[in-house]
Amino acid sequence: MELLKLPEVSPKELFHLLQDLYTKSRLLYLLKSAVDLGIFEYLEDYKTSKEIARRIGCEEVSLECTLEALYKVGLLDKKLENGNILYKNSQIAQIYLREDSQYSYLIPIKDMFKRLEYWSDGSILKDKKVVEEGEFFSEVVKVMAEECKCWELQKTVEYLLKFEEVKRARKLLDIGGGHGLYSIAFAMANKNLKCYVFDLPQVIKVTKYYIKRYRVRNVYTIEGDYYRDDIGRNYDIVFSSYNPGGKDPLVIEKIYRGLKEGGLFINKQRFPLSQDVKDVLDNIEWNFLEFKRCKKEKFRYSFERSLQFQDYLSFLEDIGFEILEVVRMKDILGYDLDRDAMMIVARKEG
């Protein structure tokens, strides 16, 4: 008789959740397969599934279903011609999913799957992996470079050029500047500006690669640890992009001393305010790794001494900054990918 007894609660919600997760997981790994097979490289123009299958050495029926799924999610366009179904890259795939595109997003996509490996290994929840900061960030900044050049860098620089102080600046410090693309962009926009990227020695090797790649002459590097070393003086601007040190009171005091009177501290920063399921997952991922020297806090993007948003604003004013503007990055970018991201522009008062 136990077999005829219904459970106390219907499994509907669980089944719907599992089906949704399973469908999205399959789509994600289908995208990985498409990238690995180079499907988007061959679909600049309309082609049949048979042509693509022959080109990449794939079974035609499975490939036809793959192309149809990619069409359904907006990554391919489709048309019927002479009784044949043809596919080609949608505009978004042509721009972001091809190796030779200036805005290729393939490196961040591949990094996403690398990070998913931590999730598939349940032992990471028991035993954190300890990493050395220089080695870790020298790899991370390569991914961040490929991400930011696809939209955020251009929109950020465009937005900041409304400030006269940015237009007439002559000396900028990009603290924890990593890849250096922001300095490179500022230097391109203002030919009279000298930009200095300050970061760990291992990271600066990556910075120098991008300086050479974009052939800029007015971007320089400074090797050091901004927690321990002097960062220099007489800057018109100190710029920080998603650098957790930008929330550390000790680092902020260094920045204040390094600025000229009337100079700007521009901090593009994540302050973890929201707590939906994505945010909780980000907190988990943040805690997968532990650094040898810098002590992380429990919540994402936070280290020991990191100030939360309101405390951060109060601290800026307490040490002598005038806050000129606080803006959510979603309002600059035009989309809401990271609700925690803010940009704060503050001026050093006399």
Rank of each mutant, 00 (worst) to 15 (best):
V131L: 02
K78F: 02
F265K: 00
L18D: 06
Y235Q: 01
K88M: 08
D279A: 15
G180T: 05
E99C: 03
Y335F: 10
D340Y: 03
R305W: 10
I52R: 07
L4H: 12
G232S: 06
V141A: 01
A34T: 10
G83R: 02
D331Y: 09
E325L: 01
L70R: 04
Q94F: 10
L70N: 06
S183C: 10
E117K: 11
E325A: 00
F163H: 14
F288E: 03
V219M: 11
K247A: 14
L75V: 01
P7F: 10
V166M: 00
I39R: 04
L76V: 13
L307M: 01
V327S: 11
Y71F: 12
L324Y: 04
A93D: 06
G134K: 03
F113P: 00
L63D: 05
Q269F: 09
K5L: 15
T23H: 15
R170C: 06
R168P: 05
D45N: 13
E349P: 02
V166C: 00
V251I: 12
Y227H: 13
F271R: 05
L3T: 13
A341D: 14
A346V: 00
I85N: 03
Y226I: 03
K78S: 07
V73M: 06
I85W: 05
E349K: 10
D45S: 15
N84G: 04
F309T: 00
Y242Q: 11
D174E: 14
Q310K: 15
G74I: 09
V277K: 13
K247Y: 11
L250D: 12
Y196L: 04
R293K: 14
W151I: 14
K78E: 07
Y209A: 04
N82R: 07
S123L: 09
D225I: 00
D331C: 09
F303D: 08
D338G: 03
A145V: 10
V203H: 00
V216I: 15
Q91R: 10
Y242K: 15
K268C: 15
L37T: 10
L27T: 13
F113W: 05
A93S: 13
I92K: 09
I231E: 01
Y242W: 14
D331R: 09
Q275W: 11
E99D: 10
K126A: 14
E135G: 13
V326H: 07
L160P: 05
E325H: 02
L75G: 03
K268G: 08
G177C: 03
K278M: 09
E322Y: 14
D318Y: 08
D45I: 10
R228V: 14
G258I: 01
N192T: 11
D127F: 07
Y103I: 03
A53T: 08
K247S: 15
K162S: 11
V61I: 14
I237D: 01
E8R: 13
E51R: 03
Y312N: 03
R217H: 13
D236C: 06
N283K: 07
N283Q: 09
Y210L: 05
F198K: 04
D282M: 12
L200Q: 03
I255M: 15
D77G: 08
A187T: 02
L116Q: 05
E223K: 02
L27M: 11
E68H: 11
S62L: 08
Y46K: 09
N89T: 06
K12I: 09
